[in-house]
Amino acid sequence: MSDTTQSRSLQISPKYTVAFWRGLELDPENPKQEEWEKAVDVLRDRIQGRFIKPAQTLIDVDKVNKPQTFGFAVLSLDCLVLETIQGFREGVHNHQGHSKRLFNAFLSTWQPFLDCLEAGMVPDDKAVEFYKQGRCALHHSGATERMTVGISGPMMKFDNGDITVNRTLFHTELVAEFDRYLTALSDPASVDLRKKFLLKMHPICGL
């Protein structure tokens, strides 16, 4: 991104611009906590404004507009959030060629996901199933073959190759995980996490 007036005024979230981000003093080794709190709020505003709030709006509309569940739309947005969180955790700016690994890394260590697995199920295997049936199927073809998305039952259930997802529980748990990540990022002791956060966020702002 060239350093022009237009590029500096580019919105990186509903409230913040490239110029605002470039004006922050963010050194993980010698942190100014007030500056880091601003940086965390930029990410919060970016992910909430672009993905979480739109998904929640669809969920809220459903409460007064039954029986429409908007399940695939909600899950598609949440898959973007899931991969984005892991990308920030690892400092991966360009996700091309990394999506499958990022999904696996997130899901295979995410307790709400692990709680959905029955005895003998391998977390890595089920994470790949969800990646293929959910993220890839929805994002590439707008349809799923062996996944059902609804508003009842457990967050996720695997049954002989079929997957059932409760989009409301999935969204709720994912938002909670995003909040936990922001809390960790706000901790001055999270030096490595902050370094990786900058590896992803700086290129977005042309740094």
Rank of each mutant, 00 (worst) to 15 (best):
102 L>R: 12
115 D>Y: 02
35 E>F: 05
82 L>D: 02
62 D>T: 15
135 R>C: 08
25 E>D: 15
193 L>W: 09
14 P>M: 07
17 T>L: 08
65 N>S: 13
55 A>N: 06
197 F>M: 11
114 L>Y: 02
48 Q>H: 13
188 P>G: 06
124 D>T: 10
110 W>I: 02
139 H>F: 15
160 N>E: 13
195 K>D: 03
131 Y>V: 10
189 A>K: 12
10 L>D: 07
16 Y>H: 14
64 V>M: 09
78 D>C: 07
203 P>R: 05
168 T>A: 08
198 L>F: 04
48 Q>R: 15
162 D>Q: 09
98 H>E: 14
78 D>P: 00
205 C>H: 04
138 L>I: 15
202 H>Q: 14
74 V>Y: 10
55 A>D: 05
94 N>R: 03
51 F>R: 09
158 F>I: 00
22 R>N: 12
186 S>I: 05
38 K>G: 03
194 R>Y: 03
175 V>R: 06
138 L>F: 11
28 P>S: 03
4 T>C: 08
174 L>D: 01
31 P>A: 03
90 E>A: 13
10 L>K: 15
205 C>T: 08
118 E>N: 12
12 I>N: 01
106 F>S: 07
109 T>N: 11
171 H>M: 11
60 D>I: 14
147 M>V: 09
91 G>W: 08
111 Q>L: 06
97 G>C: 07
30 N>R: 12
153 G>D: 04
157 K>Q: 15
110 W>C: 00
102 L>A: 05
22 R>P: 14
88 F>N: 06
13 S>I: 09
140 H>Y: 02
49 G>K: 07
6 Q>Y: 06
167 R>L: 00
73 A>K: 02
69 T>K: 11
180 R>I: 03
10 L>H: 10
192 D>Q: 14
28 P>V: 00
159 D>N: 12
126 K>Q: 14
150 G>T: 03
44 R>E: 13
104 N>A: 07
179 D>F: 00
10 L>S: 11
78 D>K: 02
80 L>M: 14
146 R>L: 04
142 G>W: 11
128 V>K: 06
192 D>Y: 10
159 D>I: 00
136 C>I: 09
111 Q>A: 05
153 G>W: 03
96 Q>M: 04
10 L>P: 02
